[in-house]
C-alpha cells in the first residue's frame, strides 16, 4: 500500500488515536512525528525514556506505543515488561511497536517473549511506521498471564548486551552455508524446510531462530501464531540467513 493510501486509511478508518512516542532523542521523536503530519486524527505524546513512558501511561489515555529499546536511564524492555505484567494497573495488552536497530539483537528475544506487537528496524521508513501503526491498531493479540511475562529475563545493561545476553555458539546456532538437519519427523507430521515468508499459522519451530550474529531470537518448540508471524516478518532482515525447519500440521 502506498504511503498516501496508508495515511488515508488511518484518517478514514480510525477514530482519534493517541500514540505514545518513546525515544531519548528529541530529534528522533520530532522526525517520526513529521511522518504523520498529514494524519489529522493521530495525536502524539512524547516520553524521553521508559520510566517517563510508564508515568504517562498511568495518567493519559494511550492507544499504542512506539518504544525505542536502547534508552537511558530506563530502557524500552523494562518498560515493555512493566506493561505486560500490568504493573501499577497498566493496560497489559497495550499495542507496542518496538523501534530496534541491528545492534539490539540481544534484546529482541526478550521483546519477542514479551509479545511486542510489532518491530521496526531502524532507520524507519515512513511507510513502515504507518503500516505497523495501522496493523497494531487493527489486530488484537492474545496475551499470556502477567506471571509468565514476569519470568522473562531481560539482558542486563543494553549497552553491554552483546556481552551479557545469552549468546549461542555460532557453529551450532547459525551456519548459513550449511543447512540444519531436519528433525522431528514423525508419522502425521510434515517437516518442511522453508523461509520465514513461507511459515504458516500453527507451524511449530523445530530449530531455534537466531539473529545474524548468533543471538537466540525465538526458541525451538514455539508455535507460530499470527502475532509471531507478524513479528518474524518485521524482523526478517535480522534473522540469520538459513532455512527454518518447522513441524507442520497436515492439512485437514
Amino acid at each position: 500500500m502506498s504511503m498516501d493510501a496508508l495515511r488515508k486509511a488511518i484518517s478514514e478508518n480510525m477514530g482519534a488515536v493517541n500514540v505514545l512516542l518513546v525515544d531519548d532523542q528529541s530529534f528522533v521523536r520530532k522526525i517520526v512525528k513529521s511522518v504523520f503530519q498529514d494524519v489529522d486524527n493521530i495525536r502524539f505524546i512524547d516520553a524521553a525514556d521508559g520510566s517517563e513512558a510508564l508515568n504517562t501511561l498511568q495518567s493519559l489515555s494511550v492507544d499504542a506505543v512506539f518504544l525505542d529499546i536502547n534508552m537511558r536511564p530506563t530502557n524500552g524492555l523494562e518498560a515493555l515488561k512493566a506493561i505486560r505484567t500490568g504493573q501499577d494497573g497498566l493496560r497489559q495488552d497495550m499495542p507496542v511497536i518496538m523501534l530496534t536497530g541491528v545492534s539490539d539483537q540481544a534484546a529482541v528475544r526478550a521483546a519477542v517473549e514479551l509479545d511486542s506487537n510489532a518491530f521496526i528496524l531502524k532507520p524507519a521508513t515512513p511507510s513502515t511506521l504507518l503500516d505497523r501503526l495501522t496493523r497494531v491498531l487493527s489486530k488484537r493479540q492474545p496475551m499470556k498471564s502477567a506471571k509468565e511475562y514476569a519470568r522473562v529475563q531481560l539482558p542486563t545493561g543494553l549497552d553491554e548486551d552483546a556481552i551479557v545476553a545469552p549468546r549461542l555458539d555460532p557453529k551450532s546456532a547459525s551456519a548459513p552455508t550449511e543447512p540444519a538437519p531436519i528433525a522431528g519427523s514423525t508419522p502425521g507430521t510434515v517437516v518442511v524446510k522453508v523461509g520465514i515468508q513461507m511459515l504458516r499459522r500453527n507451524d511449530r519451530l523445530v530449530d531455534d531462530i537466531t539473529t545474524k550474529n548468533g543471538q537466540l531470537m525465538v526458541i525451538a518448540g514455539t508455535e507460530v501464531d499470527d502475532a509471531m508471524l507478524d513479528r518474524l516478518t518485521d524482523l526478517k532482515d535480522m534473522v540469520a540467513a538459513k532455512d527454518i525447519d518447522v513441524e507442520r500440521e497436515p492439512d485437514r
Partner: peptide, 17 residues
C-alpha cells in the same frame, strides 16, 4: 560503555536524517 552508547545514538540520528 559511553562510547558505545553515544555511537549508537549518533548512528540512529544520522541514518534517520
Amino acid at each position: 560503555d559511553d562510547i558505545q552508547y553515544f555511537a549508537h545514538r549518533i548512528k540512529g540520528a544520522s541514518k534517520l536524517i
